[in-house]
């Protein structure tokens, strides 16, 4: 997958996303590969808030909004309905943030993965509940300062490590799962293409930096998405045919290079 081979046509236009939003970039890039024969199912996270406020529709594909816990359950319904309509060729893509995936949406995701429905689930991970004002989620990394893990006399920020979603979804023995970063778009897009070809459920977990939530200048989004991988704060990996594969990207840097650029880790550097 080469960036220059991507279609010029934008399927995400007119969103109210913040400048430098990693999440909207993750969706925009994915839709370049997924194409117009796609249905998005999403929840009231940042993505819904910035793309589908009536009469706005910032996608050139249909979008089904559903309750926070139920992205994957609604996916199963859409898949079943399209099958009855004889439209099985339409790709059903669930998109949720980390809260809507690893926390409140986990039960529904597990159910849909276990049922083996044919869909792609993309978690755009900005590592906290950004839409509601930067509260910690199960995907918040150790040490991060959030509004519910504020740094103070008795707290050094988030006191638990990030939930390992790749292993959780892999435990369902699905066809394909991968982590990605918007800082490595060619790798991410290759994985979206792979997910499209998978028979059954496929899962992508894409790190998507958030300028207001992480506390950095908006032009640093892509740099941080790369630094996260180069410093080992985030790993690029794939699960396929029952095997995990961790990718080496080179250009290793100390973790401080990543932490130093973000207010959420200011107390650690």
């Amino acid at each position: 997958m080469k960036i220059k081979d991507l279609p010029q046509e934008e399927l995400v236009t007119g969103s109210y996303a913040c400048a430098g939003c990693g999440g909207i970039l993750a969706v925009r890039l994915a839709l370049k590969v997924l194409g117009k024969n796609t249905v998005i199912v999403t929840t009231p996270g940042c993505l819904l808030g910035v793309t589908t406020f009536y009469p706005q529709l910032a996608f050139k594909v249909p979008c089904v909004n559903i309750t926070f816990p139920s992205t994957a359950a609604a996916i199963s319904g859409v898949v079943a309905g399209l099958k009855k309509r004889g439209r099985e060729g339409i790709k059903v893509v669930g998109i949720a943030g980390d809260g809507g995936t690893v926390d409140i949406g986990l039960q529904a995701l597990s159910g849909a993965l276990e049922r083996g429905d044919n869909f792609i689930f993309i978690c755009y991970d900005n590592e906290a509940y950004m839409n509601t004002g930067v509260q910690r989620s199960g995907a918040t990394p150790l040490g991060a300062n959030t509004t519910t893990t504020p740094v103070g006399k008795n707290s050094r920020g988030e006191d638990r490590p990030k939930k390992d979603m790749l292993r959780i979804v892999a435990a369902h023995d699905i066809a394909y799962a991968a982590t990605a970063s918007i800082g490595y778009p060619a790798d991410y897009l290759r994985k979206v293409a792979k997910a499209m070809q998978a028979r059954g459920a496929a899962y992508l977990h894409v790190l998507s930096p958030c300028p207001p939530g992480w506390g950095y200048a908006s032009e640093l989004t892509v740099e941080l998405a790369r630094l996260a991988v180069q410093t080992g704060a985030w790993q690029l990996a794939e699960y396929e045919g029952g095997e995990f594969k961790i990718q080496k990207v080179g250009r290793e840097k100390p973790l401080s290079a990543y932490y130093a650029l973000q207010a959420r880790f200011a107390h650690l550097v």
């Binding site: 199912v41 089904v64 199963s76 319904g77 859409v78 079943a80 399209l82 309509r85």
Partner: peptide, 20 residues
Amino acid sequence: IRVESEHAALAACYGAAVTG
């Protein structure tokens, strides 16, 4: 659709209903 909860049951019904 053999769902894993009632919340999911109605969410799945909703998803199927929007397809007509």
